[in-house]
Structures are given as C-alpha cells and as structure tokens.
Amino acid sequence: MATRDVIVDAAARVLRERGLANATTKEIAREAGFSEATLYKHFRDKLELMVVVLHERGPQFIPMLQSLPARAGTAPVRDILTELAEVCIVFYRDGLPMFASIFSDPAILAAHRDRLRTQNLGPHRANEGLAAYLRAEQALGNISADADPEALAGLVLGSCFQHAFITYFTPVAPDDHTAAAGFVSQLRL
C-alpha cells in the first residue's frame, strides 16, 4: 500500500476516534508508522488530511452522489434513495466526531470553509447532487411534476443526519436500512 494511503487510513481511524481538535499530526503519523515529516510530504496540515479522509474514506457517499444523475430511470426511485440514505447515514455517523471538532472552533471552521470553497466543495454539493438526480427522475415522469426536488433532497439528507446523530445517543435506534427505508417510504414522490 502506498505511503499516502497508509497515512489516510491512519488519519481516518484517529480522527473518527478522537475528532479533529483532539487528534495531532504526530499521533496520526505514529498510527501510520511514519514520521511527522513523512506526513507533511503528502499533506499541508491536519485540516487537509481530514478533508481527504472525508472524501476518500467516506463509505462511497461522494462517489454515489456523483453517479446519481446517470442512474435516473435505471431502478425505482425509492430503491435508489434508500441505497443512498444507507450510505449517507454511515458517512454522517463516521464523520460526526470530525464535524463536531470543526464547528467547535471558529478558526478551524473558517479554514475548512475556505479550503472547501477553493475546491468547489461543501455540504451543499450533496443537496445539489441529490436534487439533480431527482430532477432527472422528474423529467422521466418517475416523480410527480409538482414535487420539489430541492426540498426532497433536504428531507432525505436531513433525515440521514438526524438518524446518524441519534444513534450516538440511543442503542435502540433502528438499524440503518430500516431507518433509511422508513423515511424514504414517507416521501411524497
């Protein structure tokens, strides 16, 4: 495995366990089995490393969002949305420790926003990607003409985030598939 990938895997473990604010590059490098200097040969800083972890080690959430418009008309809308919701729940749950660290420090949040802006990325891209898919399904007649794709995207992604958040607090939350299928089934498509 390439050095960069080993570092990203180690960062994913450390950041998910400790959050961004409580993880150090020294600790990440040690977890990867390299020096901090090696880490800095591949990444500018801990924040860049966190963004890479979210994008490259997220459970296929971003690639799935990117592929959604091409999937329009290939399967029932509810099936695709349920599949997306399951992946999204895992992404949000794995990311919550990092998200909490970002929002707890205004300087980190500002740096993260700036970094995402320069890469034309950010959480709004998930909503936009899902809404684009829903508009494509709407154009095919698979979703009601009076449905609001942007609102539906917000409802699906918001429900996923809420479920991921709740599972941190209660061991009796429904499993991810049951939750995803449940809130997708309630959508008025």
Rank of each mutant, 00 (worst) to 15 (best):
F91L: 10
N142F: 00
D114R: 09
T82H: 08
C88W: 08
Q60Y: 14
L116K: 13
A70R: 01
I143N: 07
P149Q: 10
T118A: 02
A100M: 11
S144F: 11
G122L: 08
Q138G: 02
P97C: 04
V172N: 14
V87N: 10
A107V: 07
A75H: 04
A179H: 07
Q60C: 08
A179D: 06
F169T: 08
I89V: 10
P97S: 05
D175N: 12
A153I: 09
A85L: 04
A147T: 09
A147S: 02
A107D: 07
V87Y: 11
F169W: 15
L121H: 01
R125G: 13
A107H: 03
Q119W: 09
E86H: 06
Q119S: 08
H55Y: 14
M98L: 07
G154T: 08
G73W: 05
L96T: 00
V90I: 15
F183M: 07
E128G: 01
N127V: 14
G182H: 05
E150V: 13
F91W: 15
T178G: 13
V184H: 01
L121E: 09
Q60I: 06
L155T: 09
R57F: 05
L140I: 03
E56I: 06
S67K: 14
A75F: 01
P63L: 10
L116F: 07
G182Y: 06
P106D: 13
R125W: 12
M64I: 14
T170P: 02
V77Y: 03
A100S: 14
A100K: 15
T118Y: 00
F169I: 15
I80P: 05
E83W: 02
T74E: 05
R93Q: 11
F91Q: 13
F91R: 07
F99I: 11
A147C: 00
L116D: 03
R78L: 00
H55P: 06
Q162S: 14
L140S: 03
F161I: 11
P63E: 03
I62L: 15
A136P: 09
A151N: 13
R57W: 01
Q138A: 00
Q162Y: 15
N120Q: 13
Y92S: 02
H112C: 08
E86R: 11
M98E: 03
P97T: 03
N127Y: 13
R117T: 04
T170Y: 07
L134V: 07
N127Q: 15
P149N: 09
E150I: 05
T178V: 14
S185T: 12
I89E: 05
R93I: 12
N120L: 12
H177E: 14
F161H: 12
L157Y: 00
G141A: 12
D148H: 11
R117M: 10
A153S: 11
L130T: 07
Q66S: 08
A180T: 09
A145R: 04
Q60S: 10
